[in-house]
Design a protein around this nucleic acid. Sequence first.
DNA 1: CCTTTCCAACCATCTAGTTGGTTTAAACGA
DNA 2: TCGTTTAAACCAACTAGATGGTTGGAAAGG
Lengths: 186, 186
Amino acid sequence: MAYDSAATRARLLDAAYGEFVERGLAGARVDRIAAAAQANKQAIYAYFGSKEGLFDAVLAARLSVLADEAPFDPDDLPGYAGSLFDALAATPGLIRLTQWSRLERADATPGEIESHQEKARAVREALKLPDDLAATDILEIVIAIATTWSNMPPGLKAARGVSASARQQVHRATVVAAAKAVCQAL
Amino acid sequence: MAYDSAATRARLLDAAYGEFVERGLAGARVDRIAAAAQANKQAIYAYFGSKEGLFDAVLAARLSVLADEAPFDPDDLPGYAGSLFDALAATPGLIRLTQWSRLERADATPGEIESHQEKARAVREALKLPDDLAATDILEIVIAIATTWSNMPPGLKAARGVSASARQQVHRATVVAAAKAVCQAL
DNA sequence: CCTTTCCAACCATCTAGTTGGTTTAAACGA
DNA sequence: TCGTTTAAACCAACTAGATGGTTGGAAAGG
C-alpha cells in the first residue's frame, strides 16, 4: 500500500471537523480524532503543528466552503439571508463550529474580519448608507436573523403535528420576510 | 473565625461564573474556581455534587437575574429588544455563558424551555398570530436581533474615531428599529 | 541508499473527584 | 458553669486515570 499524505491530511480534517463541532477545542481529544481518521496521532503534529493549529485549519477550510455555498449579494440581502439559512440547515455543524471558535479563540480570524469588511463596504454602497458602521449593523443583524434557527436549541424548535421539514420552511419564509423588513426600514 | 457555608457557596458561584464565562465547562478547572473563591475544592463537591452540577447552578442563577433585568413585554417587543440589549451590554459574560451552555449541554434547560413557551404564548396573543410557531419565530428573531452586538467578535466591532459607548448607542437604536420593522412586517 | 510517511510506545504534566483527617462552635450533661 | 461531645464546615494530600505532545524507530517507494 502506497503512502498518501494528502489523503491522510484530508481524513484528519474531516475527523477533526466532527470532533470539534461536537466538543469544541478544549473538549476535543486528539486521540479520538486520530482514531476516527484511521491515522497516527503523530501525523496531526506533523501536518498541523498542534491541536490548535488543527482547529484553525478546520475552521478556515469550512468557512471557505460556506462562502461558496451561500454567495453574498449586497443587492439582495433577504435573498442572501435565505441562502445562508439553507446552507446552514444543510450542514448544522457549521454554526456550532463558528460558535466554538467565537468562544475559544480571542477574536475572529483575519480572514473573517477581512471578509466582513468587504461585505460591509458592499452593503454600504448598495443601500446608500452614510458609513461602514451602519452597514455593519444591518449586515450583522441580517446574518443574526438568518442564523436564528441554527442557533436554537432543539427544545425550543419542537413543534407537535408539523414535520421538521415543513417547520423549517415556514421559518425560512419568516427569515426572508424579516430581513426584507429590516433592509427597508433602515 | 466562624464557618459560613452560605458565604462559601456564594463565593464559589461567583468564581465559577467567571471561570465558566471565560473557558466553558470543558475548559474550566475546579482547582482555579476553588482558588478564586478562596475555598477548598472539596466544597464544590459538597455543595454542587460535580463540576457539571456547579455549571448548571451558575447558569440557573444567572438566567434568573437576566429575567429580572430585562423584563419581558409582549406588547412592546422593540422595547424588550432594547432592554435586553442593555442588560447584555452591562454584563457581557452572560451571553457567553448562554453560548457555552448551548454548545456543551444537550438542550436548553427545562426552565429555559418553559420560559420560552410562556413568552411565545404571550407574543401570540399580543400580535394576534395564528399559532405558537409563528410567535416562536418572531420572538427568537427579535432576541437574535437584540443579541447581535453581544455575539459579535471584537474584530468586527472595531470602529475608528468613535467611542465605544457612542458606537454601542448607535447599534442599540438600530436594534430597536429592526425589531420594530420585524414586528410590523410579520 | 535515501527521503517521505507512518507507527507504537513513551513522557511529563494535568485533572476531576475522593479521603482521612482538623477546626469551629453549638449542644449537652454533670 | 465548665468540660466533653457532636455535627457542620473546612483542609491538604491523594488517586487513578487522562492528555497533548514527543521519540526512536519501521515501512514504502523513488
